[in-house]
Design a protein around this nucleic acid. Structure first.
Length: 736
DNA sequence: TACTGGATTATTTTT
DNA sequence: TAATCCAGTA
């Protein structure tokens, strides 16, 4: 039997249609990834297309990785030469080869948002603009928007009518000048510069047109104008384009995603064929019907109606609570109960919320209930301070052209080199037209630095010695050396706070990532590692093997699926968010509704929506109505519970006394379930009868230890909290 | 230069 | 609530 027989009719059509541009309108859970992977297989095996000529583009590394694995699994030969990558990494690969044609050097650095902000702040200061009016974030957002719409500074200037816009254009221009001078690109530039390269160098474009004869794009509804142009240029020769998307799942308009790309696909490519995939393989009938009804309240969409052969399943559960504490309590208890009684795994559950700030309470409750969880988002691993510091050292050693990296670490740890000194060096570098680091090397000729001469020399000496050693030291050893000789770790250890401990763990994790990189890549170089690291996001780290409940925003959940989903904070003012209902802009409300649709369709078996009547928001108590989205679900599809009167979960303030998490962003790392699997083989450092200490529950006596499937389960009688059972590796008990 | 405290200000964010 | 920024002080 051929692999294509397992596909339904529409899927087969989508896989086999080869006559020009194809738009696959794939509803949630309709097997779009299957279509893409099978299409790749079909091209290679039936159409005898050289795998080398096939390009598949996704948005996240995670999606790319998954697609790669699935292609590997169904294609016998040549799968590894298929180009499967994200927009951004594809562009990086192209630019590393050819960006010198448009006035950069091929070893450019990539700025993340934090870097851009830092640069922007400095720039605004230099331009003497009032930071009260010119806010770095606002300006960067505008620049990003312009870039995503492929508007260059010159054009921005031309379009500007009002005075502020003219000023804005000037800032945009300056910012680009700065980037170029530092041989740096921000995320948006990766796309913009590639398009520019294609436009000015036809033979390079031609090369890639010949190379990528068959192009496939996933999540097409979230492409922005630059991405579209990138694709359009590439396919304009052979016209073998297949895009897969769902206009109902377009949720990144605020970041420049152009829903017109999908809605007007047929206009841009008049010969295009459209195939709809409406059979859903993921969810129950009830979940699907709810999703259909909700999304039906939107105007201006391509009409689709998902159906499934799956059973109708449970009703949608809705529970309203007095306040947010009860809400979190209920969910923690519900998960716990289901895991115990129904023999489910933690990884079958996900909690989805509108904004990251909502995660805190759930973390606290899950900690207390001993439920392993992983928080996705909020702070990207590589954006954490300690990680960025160490990476900045590596960058400086690798290539001291990156002024930003040098400036970041010159006084970390504290070397007594302050802002005034830095300004002087900067000024000197500016006047001489040299790099910051090179200016540091000429410190003797910089006026007004007498007192700090030696401090600076000590720093440059340190960097030079690291560079000298880079050649024969491995990456791991190099990093180790930096950590040791800067005293970075020592300083953190001395702090002895929860936060410092979390940072130390992150550093350990970085070490293992470096080690991993060295092992997995054929020729590991410092530059290679730094590049790999610059384009990863938090969601990429979610792996199927680990057993934990996932907590994330509705946005990050796109593309994922779970047996049991909780959508929390279903209140008007939270979701849909306050700003979208107060403004009379219905298109923003529609985007929120699409977000809701995305949330609902993540669920395979059960969906629980919760809301609180009362909620503390920024130290103010808010009273919110139940979300209009909940009301848009037909009444008969919902189990309304007892609507609100649920005495069992009444709020007991004593539970919260002294239990605040030190810091949200770090706590999740502290409870990495990774440690779960690792620890099992080791025996425990404590035994029955020992006195142990738990970071939240305090001191207690071990009553029992049993060996479970993956881990030891320990029963402890705590002085304050009473008897608790917990997983050993998760609880991290310390013997006293 | 480095630290402290008061004022200020808040979505969502694949890279 | 909580993070960030700036001004004033040690």
């Amino acid at each position: 039997m051929s692999i294509y027989e397992s596909l339904n009719n529409d899927q087969q059509k989508a896989v086999m249609y080869m006559e020009g541009p194809l738009l696959v309108l794939a509803g949630a859970g309709s097997g779009k990834t299957r279509v893409l992977t099978h299409r790749i297989a079909y091209l290679i095996e039936e159409k005898k297309v050289n795998p080398w000529n096939i390009m598949a583009i996704t948005f996240t590394n995670k999606a790319a990785k998954e697609m790669r694995e699935r292609v590997d699994a169904i294609v016998d030969f040549g799968a590894e030469s298929v180009w499967v990558s994200t927009f951004h990494s594809s562009c990086v690969d192209i630019l590393r080869k050819y960006i010198d044609r448009i006035g950069y050097e091929n070893n450019f650095t990539i700025y993340d948002i934090e870097d851009s902000k830092f640069v922007m702040k400095e720039m605004l200061r230099r331009l003497n603009l009032n930071p009260k009016i010119y806010k770095d974030q606002v300006i960067l957002a505008k620049i990003s928007k312009a870039k995503n719409a492929l508007i260059m500074p010159e054009e921005y200037e031309k379009n500007a009518t009002r005075w502020e816009e003219k000023k804005m254009a000037q800032v945009y221009h300056e910012y680009q000048v700065h980037l170029r001078k530092n041989n740096a690109l921000d995320f948006d530039d990766l796309l913009v510069r590639t398009v520019e390269l294609f436009r000015v160098e036809p033979e390079i474009l031609n090369f890639y047109q010949e190379r990528f004869r068959y192009i496939m794009i996933d999540e097409y509804q979230d492409t922005n104008t630059v991405q579209f142009e990138f694709v359009r240029l590439l396919v304009s020769k052979h016209k073998n384009l297949c895009v897969v998307g769902d206009d109902d799942q377009s949720i990144y308009k605020f970041r420049g995603a152009n829903i017109g790309n999908i809605l007007e696909f047929e206009r841009v490519f008049p010969e295009a064929k459209v195939i709809k995939l409406e059979q859903n393989y993921r969810s129950t009938q009830n979940i699907l019907n709810s999703a259909n009804e909700v999304i039906n309240h939107n105007q201006g969409r391509k009409v689709k109606r998902l159906w499934t052969k799956n059973e109708s399943g449970e009703l949608i559960h809705f529970r309203q609570f007095q306040n947010e504490f009860e809400e979190a309590d209920f969910i923690a208890e519900d998960v716990s109960k289901k895991v115990k009684t129904k023999d489910l795994q933690y990884k079958n559950f996900a909690i989805l919320y509108r904004a990251n700030a909502q995660s805190r309470l759930f973390e606290e409750k899950f900690l207390l209930a001993n439920i392993p969880y992983k928080l996705v988002g909020s702070v990207n691993f590589y954006a954490r301070k300690e990680i960025k510091d160490l990476l900045a050292y590596l960058k400086t050693v690798d290539n001291a052209l990156d002024d930003l990296a040098v400036q970041r670490i010159i006084n970390v740890p504290k070397r007594g080199i302050g802002v005034t000194t830095l300004r002087r060096v900067e000024k000197y570098a500016w006047e001489q037209g040299i790099n910051f680091y090179d200016a540091l090397l000429e410190v003797d000729s910089i006026p007004g630095l007498r007192r700090n001469l030696n401090k600076i020399k000590a720093f440059t000496l340190f960097i030079q010695s690291l560079r000298a050693q880079e050649e024969y030291l491995g990456l791991e050893e190099l990093l180790e050396k930096i950590i040791k000789e800067t005293g970075y770790l020592k300083e953190l250890k001395a702090e002895n706070t929860e936060e410092a401990k979390a940072r130390i763990e992150n550093i350990d994790e970085l070490m293992s990532k470096v080690a991993n990189y060295e092992k997995s890549s054929e020729q590991s170089t410092l530059s290679g590692f730094l590049q790999e690291v610059s384009l990863v996001s938090d969601i990429d780290s979610v792996e199927d093997g680990n057993d934990y409940v996932l907590m994330m925003t509705l946005h990050s959940a796109k593309g994922l699926e779970f047996d049991n989903v909780y959508m929390v904070g279903m209140e008007d003012g939270i979701f849909p968010s306050y700003l979208t209902i107060s403004g009379e802009n219905s298109s923003e409300l529609e985007e929120e509704r699409r977000l809701c649709y995305v949330g609902i369709t993540r669920a395979r078996k059960t969906l629980t929506m919760t809301s609180a009547m009362q909620r503390m928001i920024r130290s103010e108590i808010q009273y919110n109505k139940t979300s209009r989205f909940v009301m848009e679900i037909p009444r008969e599809l919902v189990d309304w519970g007892w609507y609100t009167i649920n005495t069992r979960h009444s709020f007991d303030p004593s539970i919260f006394g002294g239990m605040k998490l030190s810091r949200r962003a770090y706590s999740a790392e502290t409870f990495k379930p990774r440690k779960f699997t690792v620890n099992k083989s080791k025996s425990l450092e404590y035994d029955i009868g020992d006195t142990v200490c738990h970071i939240k529950f305090g001191i207690g006596k071990v009553q029992d230890i049993t060996e479970g499937g993956k881990d030891y389960e320990v029963t402890v009688d705590f002085e304050q909290m009473g008897v608790k059972r917990m997983f050993a590796s998760f609880a991290k008990l310390k013997k006293l």
